[in-house]
Amino acid sequence: GSLMYASIFGNVSAIIQRLYSGTARYHTQMLRVREFIRFHQIPNPLRQRLEEYFQHAWSYTNGIDMNAVLKGFPECLQADICLHLNRSLLQHCKPFRGATKGCLRALAMKFKTTHAPPGDTLVHAGDLLTALYFISRGSIEILRGDVVVAILGKNDIFGEPLNLYARPGKSNGDVRALTYCDLHKIHRDDLLEVLDMYPEFSDHFWSSLEITFNLRDTNMIPGSPGSTELEGGFSRQRKRKLSFRRRTDKDTEQPGEVSALGPGRAGAGPSSRGRPGGPWGESPSSGPSSPESSEDEGPGRSSSPLRLVPFSSPRPPGEPPGGEPLMEDCEKSSDTCNPLSGAFSGVSNIFSFWGDSRGRQYQELPRCPAPTPSLLNIPLSSPGRRPRGDVESRLDALQRQLNRLETRLSADMATVLQLLQRQMTLVPPAYSAVTTPGPGPTSTSPLLPVSPLPTLTLDSLSQVSQFMACEELPPGAPELPQEGPTRRLSLPGQLGALTSQPLHRHGSDPGS
């Protein structure tokens, strides 16, 4: 009898404990919600809404976190579960008819179910419309201010047509639940991603989709105040780019002037030289400038040598048109050559190039014969006009050509200096018209024969001689050997007369 009593008592207590286990969990969670309300000092109306929603959600799901349970299964099984949970929507909604099984599984994985109690606001006026909503159960109302403009029910759709707008718009009203509602919502990016994977279904979906109420604000059109608020930074940046392009296009129409201050000032006329910023005076940081632009901040801005204009002085008759350009485009679109090309026009420029290279940067340069637009006047290309890779490749080509020119210049200078040193070592320090008596009659020769300089066969020296023939050397430049009979510069000019005159010897006659 005691054994029977113990078994009955144990079973009854276990049954009672299981009955009250759900209630215990409910009270535990309710205590957490109330502690949250007390800690954050939530006001009474919002506090009442929180408690009511918790009670309804507990009775609806029995305190089970559906998302946590669903995430515990593998992905393939999750797709089947989501397809079952959203079967009513996918079967009865017209846009989803005719979709393949794979497309429906992908869509079912992207849908999220939302449960809303009465009085809950789903979308506020001015919120971004980031999702498309399908009503599965219940009814909602749409308000503009305090005026109800629409009441939607089961199988209705609200949001915005995503295929017509590249960016999400703003809501033009509040969406509030009238009863307990079940909503299926899919985010904008998720829907577009699935439709991109199934393009054959995309056309059918957009053609058959009928949005019951379009929440997009109709005033959000390009150029409206609301649109400016939504895309303020983007609009200002776009206007700045367009104004920069218009100014650079105007600059290219004036090829007669070359400016070292950047493309923003290349198009300024002579009357605007004294102004601080020219056409860019209202925004000094709008356009890029070269490193020399920092010198323009000092006094005497109108007389600054940074602004270059072609000189009108005539060229000498024998002067060549100019050196070879550094870039391939210089032959086609440049009416002034790079300062480095002028360094190779003569030997005198070679000796004085490194010492006063900055001073020569603004000297007169030889002109190319074609009066085409200036290379320095070409505006900086924006990322939309020329690819970045093209600019980098041009810079690399320019750097390689500069290296080759520097190597060639160093070799030419070394060769010229070597020839000058050899000339100085071969010439005796001094010569006299009267020579010392020699031991015999073989001493009648006034000077030792001097062998002429070897013929220069280097390509670089031939180019130097060509430049010497075309360029007029300055007075202080050293002379180079030329073709024809060679003669030492330090010898007297009348050596031929010395050989014809008898030598005057000093000596005593033994017979006297």
Rank of each mutant, 00 (worst) to 15 (best):
Y133A: 02
P339I: 13
R216V: 04
E160P: 02
P263E: 10
D509R: 08
P314V: 08
F244R: 10
P441D: 08
G496H: 07
G507T: 09
R247I: 10
P321A: 11
G169C: 02
I140T: 01
L453Q: 07
S272I: 14
A370E: 13
T442S: 14
L129W: 01
L409N: 06
S334G: 11
L162R: 03
Q423G: 07
V464C: 15
G440R: 10
T228E: 10
S374E: 06
L473F: 13
L128T: 15
T425Q: 13
S348T: 11
A414I: 05
A166E: 11
T179A: 04
Q423P: 05
S334Y: 10
T336H: 08
L375C: 15
D356P: 12
L162F: 11
G173T: 11
D127S: 04
K250C: 11
E319L: 04
P383E: 04
E471V: 12
S139L: 06
K154C: 08
P446S: 10
G323C: 12
Q423N: 11
P279S: 09
D459A: 09
M413S: 07
S302V: 11
S271Q: 04
G126N: 06
G511D: 05
N172D: 06
L178W: 02
T248L: 12
L417G: 06
R245F: 09
G159R: 02
P263F: 09
E193H: 12
G153Q: 10
P199I: 01
K241F: 07
R367P: 08
S334E: 13
E331P: 09
G226P: 09
S451Y: 14
L326P: 04
T442M: 06
T130C: 08
L491H: 11
S313N: 12
S272C: 01
P373R: 08
E471K: 04
L178I: 08
F158H: 01
K332E: 13
S224P: 14
T435F: 09
E257V: 09
L230T: 12
D146S: 07
T228M: 07
A150Y: 01
A370L: 09
P316L: 15
Q494R: 10
F467R: 08
Q501K: 12
Q361G: 08
V464G: 10
K239Y: 12
H204T: 10
L209W: 04
V175T: 03
N403D: 01
L395C: 03
T130S: 07
A477N: 04
M413G: 04
G256H: 13
L129C: 06
Q423E: 06
I151E: 04
T248H: 09
L495N: 08
S293T: 04
P449E: 12
R245G: 12
L132F: 04
A260K: 09
S341C: 10
S139Y: 07
S460L: 06
S286H: 10
S208L: 07
D251H: 07
S465C: 08
G223L: 09
T248K: 07
E231T: 12
R240Q: 07
L183H: 01
F234L: 11
F311N: 14
R137S: 12
G262R: 11
M220Y: 08
Q466H: 03
Y431E: 11
P441V: 11
Y431N: 13
A469Q: 08
S393M: 12
D412Y: 01
A343F: 04
S460D: 11
A260D: 13
R400M: 10
L164Y: 15
S207Q: 15
A469S: 10
S259V: 07
D196M: 06
P492I: 06
G493D: 07
D249L: 12
I350P: 09
L473A: 06
E328R: 14
N172V: 11
G226Q: 11
S289C: 10
H504G: 11
P383M: 15
Q418T: 11
D459R: 11
G511E: 08
H204V: 10
S202T: 08
T425S: 07
P371L: 09
D459F: 01
I211R: 02
A370N: 12
V194W: 05
